[in-house]
Design a protein around this nucleic acid. Structure first.
Length: 127
DNA sequence: GTTGTGACATCGC
DNA sequence: CGCGATGCCACAA
């Protein structure tokens, strides 16, 4: 008899953080992408999770520890979400080798595919 | 126990 | 292509 929608919300948060830590340098991931990479919690409908899981990721990232590269997590628009220090985040991403085009980055080239891509054949540098 | 807000994504105009 | 409005859950006061 489920009383709460998410039995272990905090565990879900740890999943997000752990997944964010696996993002290699020079790569970025979207909130929706992380949400899809994480299995939907027990008792949650897949469609519901797919629809709003991204928001839980955002909430989780809102309280992410310092060892999490939150800077590599952006929205599905390929832009940096509205948050204090957004400009600094852009600098950090540029420092990793990510090129910004009109405040946007090419997710098609920089979006992280998922666990397993962390080990790139060449020192993780694209060019 | 209730109310308000949020580091998103999607659809419509 | 840009902007506005919508919907879920979780957390803090």
């Amino acid at each position: 008899m489920p009383q709460t929608a998410t039995p272990n919300p905090q565990q879900f948060y740890e999943q997000v953080w752990q997944l964010a830590r696996q993002i290699p340098c020079g790569r970025v991931a979207t909130y929706g992408q992380l949400a899809q990479l994480i299995p939907c919690p027990d008792g949650i409908a897949p469609d519901e999770y797919d629809a709003f899981g991204a928001r839980w990721v955002g909430t989780a990232m809102a309280a992410c520890p310092a060892d999490v590269p939150w800077q590599r997590v952006i929205n599905s628009q390929g832009k940096i979400s509205q948050r204090p220090g957004a400009e600094k985040q852009r600098q950090l991403l540029e420092n990793e080798g990510i090129l910004f085009v009109k405040d946007k980055i090419d997710l098609k080239a920089y979006q992280w595919r998922g666990p397993g891509e962390e080990a790139w054949p060449q020192q993780g540098r694209l060019f």
